[in-house]
C-alpha cells in the first residue's frame, strides 16, 4: 500500500495540519518510505491471535462518584491564548 499525494493532503487535513502544495511531494515520499517498513506486517500469520491494546491484563478501576475538584478557572484561563467573560475564545464558528 502506498499513499498518493491526494491521500496525503486528506490525511493532513484530518489531522489539522496544513501542507503547502510545494511540500506535498516530499511529504508523500517520506511517508511512503516509512510505510515501506510496515510492508512485512501483512506477511505475519496472526490467525487466531487477539489484538493487544494494553500491556497489562487488567480491568478498569472505578472511581466513587464524588466531587473532588474546586474552581481553578482563573489559573487555567491565565494560560489561554484568548479569553473573555470567563470563556475561551476562538474565531466565530459558523454552524
Amino acid at each position: 500500500m502506498s499513499l498518493s499525494e491526494q491521500q496525503v493532503k486528506e490525511i493532513a487535513y484530518l489531522a489539522r495540519l496544513s501542507i503547502d502544495d510545494g511540500e506535498v511531494e516530499q511529504t508523500t515520499a517520506e511517508l511512503n518510505n516509512i510505510l515501506g517498513l510496515m510492508a512485512d506486517l501483512a506477511k505475519i500469520d496472526t490467525q487466531g491471535v487477539s489484538p493487544m491494546a494494553h500491556p497489562l491484563n487488567m480491568s478498569q478501576r472505578l472511581r466513587e462518584d464524588e466531587v473532588s475538584e474546586t474552581d481553578q478557572s482563573e489559573a487555567f484561563q491565565k494560560i489561554a491564548p484568548q479569553t473573555g467573560q470567563s470563556h475561551f475564545l476562538v474565531p466565530t464558528v459558523i454552524e
Binding site: H87, F88, L89, P91, T92
Partner: peptide, 15 residues
C-alpha cells in the same frame, strides 16, 4: 458548549 451570540467575531467556549 459553543456560544455564538456572546461576541460578534468570536465563538465563546464554556467547558
Amino acid at each position: 458548549k459553543s456560544i455564538h451570540d456572546l461576541y460578534d467575531d468570536y465563538t465563546a467556549i464554556d467547558l
